[in-house]
Every structure is written in structure tokens, then in C-alpha cells.
């Protein structure tokens, strides 16, 4: 299946278009944040979602690329026939690290809920015996 062939697959095509929509949303969201910054206005909850959404989107894009490549996607370590010098596999694995590092996705969601939406903080749990 060539690259053109992958686009002919309705499932892959649908996933690509969905991701494209999310990429555009992030782009315009960033422009909104930039506007707030230039005007000196607080961004509020809007500023808290960038890390969570961006890291996941990065990972999802790489996942789609690997699926579209099929068997060729598993080639690595400069194997013959490796595509894009193994960049997609590298980014797929590295982006998982980014989802975890600098505040995990779960922590990001807590912050969005508590600081962004004003939900009550989680009670500091007592040590379970």
C-alpha cells in the first residue's frame, strides 16, 4: 500500500481528517492565547489545556502514521526500507514520555478542574493503614 493507497482507506482517511481538525483547533487556540497575552488579559482556563491536548495530539498523529505505514512502521535502527529515518516510531515513543513528564495528563486534568473550573480540591488523603 503506497501513501496514496493509505488515503483511499476510508478508516485511515477519517482518522486523518479528525486529527487535522484538532490541529487546526490548537492553532486557532494558540492565536487566541497570543491575543490575550498581547492585551495583557489573563487567559484563564484556556491557558491550562495546551500541554494536555498538545501532547496527546502529537502522540495520536504518530500513531496514525505508524498504522498507515503498516509493516514498514516497525522497522528501526536504520534498517533497510526504514521510512523517515525511523522518526515516526521515535516520536511515537517519545511523545508518550512527554504526556507523562512535566505534569502527567492526570495531573493536568486535576489542575484544569481545580484551578480552571473551580472544582473542589481533592482531599489530602490520610495514610491508609
Amino acid at each position: 500500500m503506497t501513501a496514496a493507497g493509505a488515503l483511499d482507506d476510508p478508516v485511515l482517511c477519517d482518522r486523518l481528517v479528525q486529527l487535522q481538525g484538532q490541529v487546526l483547533a490548537m492553532k486557532y487556540h494558540a492565536l487566541r492565547l497570543l491575543t490575550c497575552a498581547l492585551k495583557g488579559e489573563p487567559a484563564g482556563v484556556a491557558g491550562l489545556i495546551v500541554k494536555l491536548n498538545g501532547c496527546q495530539l502529537n502522540h495520536d498523529l504518530c500513531a496514525l502514521a505508524l498504522e498507515a505505514m503498516g509493516e514498514l512502521g516497525v522497522l528501526y535502527h536504520r534498517a533497510k526500507y526504514e521510512r523517515a529515518r525511523g522518526a515516526w516510531m521515535y516520536q511515537y515513543l517519545f511523545s508518550l514520555g512527554l504526556i507523562i513528564g512535566g505534569g502527567t495528563a492526570q495531573i493536568q486534568k486535576n489542575i484544569i478542574g481545580e484551578r480552571g473550573l473551580g472544582l473542589p480540591r481533592e482531599p489530602r488523603g490520610e495514610e491508609k493503614r
Binding site: V74, L75, Y76, H77, A79, K80
Partner: peptide, 8 residues
């Protein structure tokens, strides 16, 4: 035979 290294 040429070996093809993979991520596994």
C-alpha cells in the same frame, strides 16, 4: 539474507 532491525 539481510537482517531488518525493528523496534522489537
Amino acid at each position: 539474507l539481510t537482517l531488518l532491525p525493528t523496534v522489537d
